[in-house]
Computed example of a mutant assay.
Amino acid sequence: MESKALSPEQMAQYHRDGYLVLKQFCSEAEVEKLYSTALNDDAMRKHALDLNDQTGKKTRLSLWFTPGNDVFGYLTRSEKMIAPVAQLLGEHSPVCHFHSKLMQKEPKVGGAWEWHQDYGYWYKNQFMFPDEMMSVMVALTPANKQNGCLQVITGSHKLGRVNHGFSGEQVGADMVMVENALKTMELVYCELGAGDALLFHSNLLHRSEANLSDSPRWSIISCYNLQSNIAYNETSTSWKVPVEIVPDEAILEWEAGSLSDSDFLAKENDPALKDTGWEGK
């Protein structure tokens, strides 16, 4: 997978800033197929979760664990996806797929995501090493300030894990530390074109505002873990199964099945939404 490798400059940027944007990561044809599947696959609608933000607006997502032989499975298992993830997480252990989620922010009604770190959630799953976890967001529609694109605090992954408590139905970071981080580091709006990818560290502080525009903001986020990183409070098993990599051509050329057989997350089974006793401290 050497042709998919990140440059030394890209590697340095990720480790310095906690994130990296790869423009035109997916082609127009790939985006069209992915977005069409997201809109039309019954499993996506059937298993969608609504999470309220602080104002009561709903953010909708569908989350599944094992990447299958469907178009999203082919994306998350593709060479172009796994090669940079392996480079950034460290190639001492195989890359595993923790979960993927389809984020659905509809015009006018799509809710906000409060400031958080992904590891703020995954700490409850008792993963040991946040440096061995990361996420890759692929925009299926344009993401901009108007429709609530992702905001990040540059370099905030170097803070380590910040305490998290509940914010609406979501898990949000300690706002004292967030405000301190905003005084210390740069806030960046990650505006993406359809098909662009954003790779980010599990401890990077990020948020997104409600979508008050006339345009939808949909994205697929795949989260990865190294097999060496053990989770002591996670009932799914994909996080410790090495990814079966497929060629990039699979996304467009291979026969794609439905997502109906995927192991979707049920809201009541998410450990991140359960009270551990320390959220209010």
Rank of each mutant, 00 (worst) to 15 (best):
M1A: 09
K4N: 14
A5I: 13
E9V: 15
Q10P: 06
Q13I: 10
H15V: 11
H15G: 11
R16F: 07
D17S: 15
G18V: 04
G18E: 05
Y19I: 09
L20N: 07
V21G: 09
L22H: 10
K23S: 12
E30V: 02
L34T: 08
A38S: 05
L39H: 03
N40R: 07
N40K: 04
D41E: 09
A43K: 10
R45E: 15
A48S: 15
A48K: 09
L49Y: 01
N52Q: 14
D53E: 06
Q54W: 06
G56V: 05
G56H: 05
T59C: 01
L61D: 14
L61V: 14
F65M: 11
P67Q: 12
F72P: 03
Y74T: 09
T76K: 02
S78D: 09
S78Y: 02
A83F: 01
L89M: 13
L89I: 13
L89E: 05
G90C: 10
G90D: 09
C96G: 03
K101N: 08
L102H: 02
M103H: 01
K105S: 12
K105N: 12
E106Y: 07
V109Q: 14
G110D: 11
G111P: 03
G111L: 04
W113G: 00
H116S: 03
H116K: 05
H116N: 07
Q117K: 05
D118W: 00
Y119C: 01
W122A: 08
W122E: 07
K124T: 09
M128R: 13
F129M: 13
D131C: 08
M133T: 15
S135L: 05
M137V: 15
N144Y: 05
K145A: 15
N147G: 02
G148P: 02
L150N: 04
I153F: 00
H157M: 10
H164Q: 10
H164F: 06
G165T: 07
S167W: 06
Q170E: 08
G172L: 03
A173D: 11
A173Y: 04
D174M: 12
M175W: 09
V176D: 11
M177G: 08
N180Y: 04
A181S: 15
L182E: 05
M185L: 10
V188G: 04
C190A: 13
E191L: 01
D196G: 07
F200A: 09
N203Q: 15
L204I: 15
L205H: 00
E209D: 13
E209F: 01
E209N: 08
N211Y: 02
D214S: 13
D214P: 03
D214W: 00
P216Q: 06
R217M: 00
I220G: 00
S222C: 13
S222M: 08
Y224Q: 06
N225Q: 12
N225Y: 09
S228F: 02
S228A: 13
I230D: 14
A231C: 11
Y232R: 14
E234L: 07
W239F: 05
V241F: 04
V243R: 04
E244T: 15
E244H: 14
V246S: 02
E249M: 01
L252T: 06
E253K: 05
W254A: 14
E255G: 12
E255Q: 15
L259P: 00
D261C: 08
F264I: 08
L265W: 07
K267G: 03
N269A: 07
P271K: 04
A272C: 08
A272Q: 11
L273K: 07
D275Q: 13
T276R: 13
E279M: 05
G280D: 14
